[in-house]
Computed example of a mutant assay.
Amino acid sequence: MYCLLENRALLKISGTDSEAFLQAQLSNDISKLDDTSVQLNAYCQHQGKILALFWVIKCEDDFFLSFPLDLLEAIRSRLQMFVIMSDVDITDITKKYIQVGCINETHQKALVINDKLSLIITDKKNINQFNMEPTVHWDMACVDSSLPEIFSITSEKLVPQMLNLDIDEFGVNFSKGCYPGQEVVARLHYLGSAKRRLFAFDLDSEVNIGDSLYCASSKSAKARGARYKSSGIVIFRIKYNSHFYCLATLEVELKDAKITLNNEQGPTLTRINK
């Protein structure tokens, strides 16, 4: 199945210093990226909070960064700030190419994301080569794969561990060099103190990115009289076959507790076991 991913920006990073530049900015080891796969990377600020999640693609001597369109201007400007005297060019090529999500497809141009999902980046003139299905199928596959995303509403709110990026070093490499926020991310890793993780949920009611998860039995919710303190946050949501699904962070100790949306009277979320 092929789906046109129209809501994603695409930046090209080129120049003789492009690999070194990205290595110094992103959470994963860029030197390990080949031209057959997509590498997930967190772009963090100095406190370790994620500004954006990039799908990084190597294209000969250049690199492509794919991420949600609503972050394009903020991220392009921030990356440009750190170019300084390096031989690095950052070009917005969003309108030049199309991005096609592949679900359980084998294609010679497909770049592997995981065992189910892959990505094709191709010229717009090739769009008719694909029998596109509605994007909701891609979104559902992302929920099934627990593939996280960061949008403007959740930018600078989460550290990589909350999105499970540290597990099997899927999105964070702990032996590479420094990058913004690296000390905070590494300290959480080596102390084993990730109290919140990413989980998939379903529910019968409308849910939106940025909504809070609430647990009446949470110690943090009761602390200092904070009756409605959040125990997590929704980072991705879809409506699929008249039902709602989402990916959300949640305190690990509450994963089997009753979780409601936004407050104690909100709709109940059912965790999807994987």
Rank of each mutant, 00 (worst) to 15 (best):
Gly171Thr: 01
Ile272Ala: 03
Asn41Leu: 04
Leu53Trp: 04
Cys44Tyr: 02
Phe54Lys: 01
Val143Leu: 09
Asp168Val: 10
Ile238Cys: 12
Lys274Ile: 07
Ser146Met: 12
Pro160Leu: 01
Ile238Phe: 05
Phe244Pro: 04
Gln47Asn: 15
Pro148Met: 03
Phe64Ser: 05
Ala20Gly: 06
Asn126Pro: 02
Leu261Asp: 03
Leu4Asp: 02
Ile75Trp: 07
Leu111Phe: 08
Asn273Met: 14
Asn263Gly: 04
Ala42Val: 00
Thr36Ile: 10
Ser31Glu: 06
Leu191Tyr: 08
Thr260Gln: 12
Val252Ile: 14
Lys32Trp: 02
Glu183Ala: 02
Tyr179Ser: 00
Val112Arg: 11
Cys102Arg: 00
Ile50Met: 15
Ser175Asn: 13
Glu253Leu: 13
Lys239His: 01
Glu264Gln: 13
Thr270Leu: 12
Asp256His: 14
Tyr228Gly: 05
Leu51Phe: 07
Asp34Glu: 13
Asp62Trp: 00
Asn114Met: 02
Gln25Trp: 01
Ala186Phe: 05
Tyr179Gly: 00
Thr154Asp: 02
Asp89Gln: 12
Ser212His: 15
Val143Ala: 00
Glu251Asp: 06
Arg78Ser: 15
Leu158His: 09
Ile57Tyr: 08
Lys219Leu: 13
Lys258Val: 14
Ala74Asn: 14
Leu198Thr: 03
Cys44His: 00
Asp166Val: 04
Val172Ala: 02
Leu10Lys: 09
Gly266Asn: 03
Lys274Asp: 11
Thr135Asp: 14
Ser231Val: 15
Gln47Leu: 13
Glu19Arg: 10
Leu191Ile: 03
Lys124Ser: 10
